[in-house]
Nucleic acid binder design. Sequence first.
DNA 1: AAGCTCTGTGTAAACGTTTTCATTTTGAAT
DNA 2: ATTCAAAATGAAAACGTTTACACAGAGCTT
Lengths: 344, 344
Amino acid sequence: MTEKIATIEDVARHAGVSIATVSRAVHKPDVVSEATREKVQTAIAATGYTANVMARNLRLNRSGMILLLVPDIGNPFFSSILSGIEKGASQAGYNVLIGDTQNDPEREATYAAYLRSNQADAMILLNGRLPAPLAKAPVNATPPVVIACERIPGCALPTVIIDNDQASFVATRHLLDLGHTRIAHISGPSGNILTTDRVGGYRRALKEAGIAPEQSLVYRGDFSIDSGIAAGRALLADEKTRPTAVCCASDGMAIGVIVAAKEYGLRIPEDLSVVGFDDIPHAAAYDPPITTVRQPRRRLGEQAIKLLLDRLGSKTPFVNNDDGPVIVPTELIIRQSTGPCPKP
Amino acid sequence: MTEKIATIEDVARHAGVSIATVSRAVHKPDVVSEATREKVQTAIAATGYTANVMARNLRLNRSGMILLLVPDIGNPFFSSILSGIEKGASQAGYNVLIGDTQNDPEREATYAAYLRSNQADAMILLNGRLPAPLAKAPVNATPPVVIACERIPGCALPTVIIDNDQASFVATRHLLDLGHTRIAHISGPSGNILTTDRVGGYRRALKEAGIAPEQSLVYRGDFSIDSGIAAGRALLADEKTRPTAVCCASDGMAIGVIVAAKEYGLRIPEDLSVVGFDDIPHAAAYDPPITTVRQPRRRLGEQAIKLLLDRLGSKTPFVNNDDGPVIVPTELIIRQSTGPCPKP
DNA sequence: AAGCTCTGTGTAAACGTTTTCATTTTGAAT
DNA sequence: ATTCAAAATGAAAACGTTTACACAGAGCTT
């Protein structure tokens, strides 16, 4: 059926040299004589030899694999981050193994074990939580782990994030500048650091403008369109207490709010201003195009893998004591879903 | 720094048995005595032993890895397919390694080499093209490869797809049923089998309705929103030759067409009906909600991995001679972007 | 001509498993 | 008690590499 796959021994025999020489000819060409190098080359070509990567890795005690933990691959938000990571990794000769944790601590633990069992050389966490086995590691042990997207408070591992607090502040500020004073915020799920930070920025902006925070104007969602619709329906139901602007922690929820607003016959932005977060491709093509905080997702990924490879290459420990997390800048993209506060 | 990781030898020493016994205690518990089994268990716990997967795989001559070739991870379309594949694979104890080929034949070849070099046990192709090294394999060699999403004509490998021709036929048919006769089609890029099949279904529906095909009504896009906008602007520019309905090969392009239509002041669906393809989450939340062909992406992934695991487990050859490709059903989801043909 | 240093190559160990085969122990049957 | 089969274990080979070490020969310097 499948013809036997050529090993280094076949090549050696074919070239009339030892397997050591074959190995050297491939990996340290300068240490082998011109003549033999050529013999080996032709032997490799003749046998169709491809090194058995597993044997090689066993010997070298590495896996060439970088493990990427994401809470949900199904979520397109991660796609471009992923794309940035994969690009950098593959350039450095690493493969990216994606672990879909589904927010399940058990799965996180399973994947974290890959580091111990030599299935992965390093790990990037996109899920905002340190897997249990890692959390209880000795203090001065620095596992080859980098954190991206969701910072983990109190964790000294290298981290690359956006300034969620500030980004949310700027978004809210934009609405304030337009004259709005009743501004609602639709947040992510509780317990999520993104939620904390973004709600924080929203509150800070209000406070700075001298506006008293109103509990009923902060509504909890889960980043999805559907949760945005639900939030919108709830927030906009009562004509009297209705806000004139909504600041959302995701574009999906912003779209949801707009859907709900249209159900109530509200016009965007004349009757209600809505700002999103992320700047997914669909934000620009929506009706109306959505004002949003652009998150440089690809750069986030690129930075994360860079941080990782730098450490991995130079044996620098995986800590981030003094310099703090790497912050990649966000940008408020103003489109047509926000406008001046309607006159009463 | 990092404490030495425990090997099977450490466990053996700790339990006072041979390494062979440790291995057996773990993998064939029934062949080892109750007493030693327990000794080994406690030794494992005490040493914190985790088997070195690479050594194990080298010995077993497998990698536990399934390679998934996608043209672009950044494209959210693949996320749920991926999710379905990952679920099935991980249940069967396999990991999924994603290879982002960027439609680059060279990268495809690189990844295909993973099969030879024992970095992957099997492969799933989502990119509609057989990597070069595979294509020129001997006739009766059946590499462990499964094809999904984009069928490869003349390739006998197991395949799971939707019936693109039929799905496109049904979508066009829907517009015909609404009384439209000037129906445009925005296709995918040329050379893509999806394009061929979907254009085919569109033409077939028109022909069956006795409508002469019109070259200028078929416009080529690339599945993106932007290409939909461009197509829309071109198709709708001339008020006289303007179609009353557009059938798109992706939801993104449908959204693009709607954006363009609104630029011309056209109302959807009163002035123009638009139907999409895929049923991405945003299709339902768009304004108006988009009529589209739902593609069961997760099931597509699940079927693909099932096909693969069945073959892999039973040593059934990877061919698909008689039974043909597995077809997963699509569904036309009728929303508010399509309506009766406007009276002239 | 003897001693060097290089250069190039081969031998064999090592990486951490699993598994074949041989050997020992157990326990039942005689 | 002796024999035998079955059960449990250990020794060692094997998986395919890389690399430390040893060694041979070539070209120098004395």
